[in-house]
Design a binder for these strands. Structure first.
Lengths: 220, 220
DNA sequence: TTGTCATCTGTCACGGACTGACATAAATTA
DNA sequence: TAATTTATGTCAGTCCGTGACAGATGACAA
């Protein structure tokens, strides 16, 4: 890696670090791009060459998490039922936040604290989750041997499980033992979701075909 | 109603109308607040006295829909199982979009077209849906005789059904027979969701207590 | 009708998030 | 070292959104 690339990577990290430090101590809204840029001794214009927006910086980590979750799912055994595979993938992801290097755990908690404190960020982070969902749907559909474009069942399954995860997160807005309660809550909502679903539903063994109206095949 | 109030109501509607006309012909992003204000012959400052932001105007109708959905749920018979009641409430809501006065239907379709064309708006409209969910959770918990603050099951149930609705909406991004395909898709995803859930799960007759960790009762 | 009062509105000034254009400085490569 | 690429800073400008102030316009009572 050349010097140029190293420098870029370095200022990028510096921007993120300084930004979150400011977010935590002043709040997200109250922190201006100019402040962040000044903290790294960079012009405001340069900030926008690294991040499309202030929000982009704040939610930058989501792409990393997306990577973690999708690979976790891909690594699950092929013969595992889709719901179980998804549940384990998420479990592994959240567990990784705990067992990772202390510095990674620290970062994760910082992110959560900043996001949870700001409704707009929270909203947009959910929207990013929707991006992750799309990828998960593709993998689930593959495992189910169906076409996600015409069959809504993979989407529904993924939507169900991410709903459970989201509810788990929502229940954990504490300060002190946040990570512990988060893991416990996600675990319990996942269990609840498992109990709520009809056994074997995720395997498409029975039931209707689940065709849906697309531009091509609209009813009537 | 006095003259003053009538005028306010009038300019408010004029702002919405002019705005959506511009949104449809130029796109949401490309339309500036100044343009909207100019179209109604009002100062830009006044625009912000009617709406907190451009987005607020674009998503103004959500409060109306929130009202429709929550009252539809409240009107369902008390002895109806929660899932059935929720499903019917949403069905009624969407059906109302079709059977309403033609002008209301037209407005609904305009809204959808503008929203669907803009990722940011779509995201935020989902966030507003989260607000609706909160109200639904309260009503569902009441019907289930449980406390939504400590028991995640009402939230999970509501999250499941709104997921189904959302998937139904996502499958319907056509132009021509949009409303028809929307109704059909929502209907079919609701049916799918019904099939996916274990019968009677929504009535809390059996299963674990579903306690969740809050600040008060966090596990270790 | 008139005068007081509340409220709505326009104007002005401003801050903060972004963007395009251009020049400069730095690293890469030959 | 020279030529080329690429990152950065400066500058000017747009748009969203807000506080402050003053003038216009209904509301209402005497």
């Amino acid at each position: 890696m050349g010097l140029r690339e190293r420098k870029k990577h370095q200022t990028r990290l510096a921007l993120i670090d300084s930004a979150f430090e400011l977010f935590l101590c002043q709040g997200y809204e109250a922190t201006t791009v100019d402040q962040i840029a000044a903290a790294v001794d960079v012009s405001p214009r340069t900030f926008f060459r690294y991040f499309g927006s202030k929000e982009d910086l704040a939610l930058d980590f989501t792409v990393e998490y997306e990577e973690l979750i999708t690979t976790a799912l891909a690594a699950r055994p092929q013969d595992e039922p889709p719901f179980t595979a998804l549940a384990h993938a998420f479990r592994e992801f959240i567990h990784a936040m705990e067992t990772n290097a202390a510095e990674d755990t620290e970062r994760f908690l910082r992110h959560r604290r900043v996001i949870d404190a700001n409704p707009t960020l929270l909203t947009t982070s959910f929207a990013r989750m929707a991006e992750i969902e799309k990828k998960l749907v593709v993998e689930v559909a593959r495992r189910q041997g169906t076409d996600p474009a015409t069959d809504p069942r993979p989407r529904l399954l993924v939507a169900f499980i991410t709903s459970a995860i989201r509810v788990g997160f929502e229940c954990s807005v504490d300060g002190a033992a946040y990570l512990g309660s988060l893991i416990w809550n996600v675990e319990s909502t996942l269990t609840l979701a498992e109990e709520a679903l009809r056994p074997g539903w995720d395997q498409l063994s029975l039931g209707s075909s689940g065709q849906v109206a697309t531009k091509a095949s609209s009813p009537r």
